[in-house]
Design a protein around this nucleic acid. Structure first.
Lengths: 346, 346
DNA sequence: TTGTAGGCGTTATCAT
DNA sequence: ATGATAACGCCTACAA
């Protein structure tokens, strides 16, 4: 015995107002010619009757959905990712920005078979465009989708010659700043923590290497480096880092490609009785709010996530409107906190 | 010069197969009578042509969208919330569970004017039902929506006589366990951190009080208590807790109504030069993965978030299928870690 | 300025 | 078993 919610249709409004549905449509959409008087009357009536246009029906007819699909890639092995802080942070800002433009968000997590999912929501007319949070390992799928004419934009590294538009931070520069900071703090045994199959990580690693090379060129300090593959998923990363530490490798400076990985490192180091920053300096990446709450507070490469979310949305809506847009590389900055301070600031 | 993606429609398949769209529809949906032979032929052809039913059109006709709206409440003042770890954690599981049933997720953040938003997606036929993550201050709006026949379910406290179905942990018991644990650890100046306008928090607070009353009844230990209003948003909570500590109040045991708030407390305590757990024991709530990564590792009230997500989805789909479902209160358990260990375990 | 009619892609009903 | 045909709710030429 369930009440069925009564839904007011445009027909109802039309009948009630004694006009045709066409007039109601015009009056409400503000398009076409309608006399001021009937327009006002219809507006009032519609509000009064609790009428709301059915975007589904409108979309079917006008091929505009007012919806954007947001895709969060999942890493194959660990399934997790949507809960990872960075994804959530940027997702929140994207949802906000889209809401401001009266757009709805269709949220999808996707693992390996991304190719289908990327096109699906648009092909089935459920969405006008797609935002992919992190290109992950799907660079080629994104390229194909964009080349096929899909409105698509990705957060991530600006890969040369990609067909799709991207917004991302200057990953190479970020990696460089992180490594240089560690060297400046006197670290001699550096470790890079990240999954080198992902374009953003590759770029961060290249920056990291550049700092090391620069350093060995000037030749003042002799520093060694190791690159350890570690997943974005925090729990998995923790286990991997623990294994690494148990293997007996010597470390005195760590650059983790995400704040979440860095926090996993902090725990692993703590459990290995290594003091941060005295024994090991740690630098993360993302500039998430939680970085400031870690113990010790985490030095990190700050990317403006809120701006990123806004940019992704604005650019995508531009694309949907038929305009061409360019990729953007956002600047990064080093935020120094206790986790990396081995020298006194004085 | 943009390629428009070519979209295969049911008509196309029908034409190609030399049958009517009706037959294609029946063959693909598996409903109605179709001969095995043509059914197979159509299936093969459809796959080959890359045809996918347009859920929009189907929804328009059959009034089933295959989509569920997930609403995340935002706290009025702080705007944040979707990025708060608990919301993300459960959202992730909900998305997973819905995907398993081939359901899409329409994600909405909502602030004060929730009343409209709750009904909107369903009334406009964008979704078959609604999942609200945390009833927040919208208990009445939820009640009204459910009474009006909306398929709606909320994560949160099972408020007596609510018209809507809910899934939540045993908040009262959780609060009780937390406070009793603090008392057992010898804390004498307890503080409750949480926003008492929210049903879940109220229940946790009642449990907390029950433990205190029980204690004062047995009369062995004389413990005082303060209840400090603190928002769910981590950054805001941090400031509020800092203010509280600066006010000079004495504390030796804290129960925070979320792990995120507890982590904010850890930071504020650290900055106030109070040692955890020696000076102050801290217990959180949620049982999030990050709790184990806090420094010191956070004692918490564990609620099975993954199970919760699955239950919310299953129940909602049952409702959509026309069956009646009951609310569920999930058990909680205390997970003891270092943040509360003042007595040696021995 | 307003109404009529057709169609968006699908499903459901009714014939055949 | 299959095919017309109407309808879902809306938009938009075109006609009035």
């Amino acid at each position: 015995m369930k009440k069925v919610p009564f839904i007011v249709t445009m027909q109802d409004v039309a009948r009630y107002a004694g006009v045709s549905t066409a007039s109601v449509s015009r009056a409400l959409a503000g398009k076409g010619e309608v006399s001021e008087r009937t327009k006002d009357r219809i507006h009032a009536l519609a509000r009064q009757m609790g009428y709301r246009v059915n975007p589904i029906a409108r979309g079917l007819r006008s091929r505009v959905t007012g919806t954007v699909a947001v895709i969060v890639p999942q890493h194959h092995e660990t399934r997790q990712s949507i809960a990872e802080p960075f994804f959530m942070e940027i997702l929140g800002h994207i949802v906000d920005a889209l809401a401001e433009h009266d757009y709805s968000v269709l949220l999808t997590k996707v693992a390996s078979n991304a190719r289908d999912w990327i096109t699906k929501s648009v092909h089935t007319r459920q969405a006008d465009g797609v935002i992919m949070i992190g290109q992950s390992v799907h660079h080629q799928a994104l390229n194909d989708a964009a080349a096929a004419g899909l409105n698509i934009i990705a957060w991530g590294e600006n890969v040369p010659d990609s067909a799709y538009v991207s917004v991302g931070s200057n990953n190479e520069q970020g990696g460089y700043l992180a490594a240089r900071h560690l060297l400046e703090q006197g670290c001699k045994k550096l470790v890079f923590l990240g999954d080198n199959r992902i374009p953003e990580v590759v770029a961060r690693c290249e920056g990291y290497r550049r700092a090391l090379e620069e350093n060995s060129a000037t030749g003042e300090i002799r520093a060694t480096s190791q690159e350890v593959p570690v997943h974005f998923d925090g729990a998995t990363a923790y286990k991997e880092i623990r294994e690494f530490l148990r293997s007996g490798s010597k470390v005195d400076g760590i650059f983790a490609v995400s704040d979440r990985i860095a926090i996993s490192a902090l725990r692993a180091l703590r459990e290995a009785n290594l003091h941060v920053p005295k024994d090991v300096a740690v630098v993360g990446y993302d500039g998430l709010p939680i970085a400031a709450f870690a113990a010790p507070a985490l030095t990190t490469i700050n990317q403006n996530v809120e701006a990123a979310g806004g940019l992704l949305v604005n650019k995508l809506l531009e694309m949907i409107a038929g305009n061409t847009v360019e990729s953007t590389v956002l600047p990064v900055e080093l935020t120094v906190r206790q986790s990396s301070l081995r020298k006194s600031t004085a």
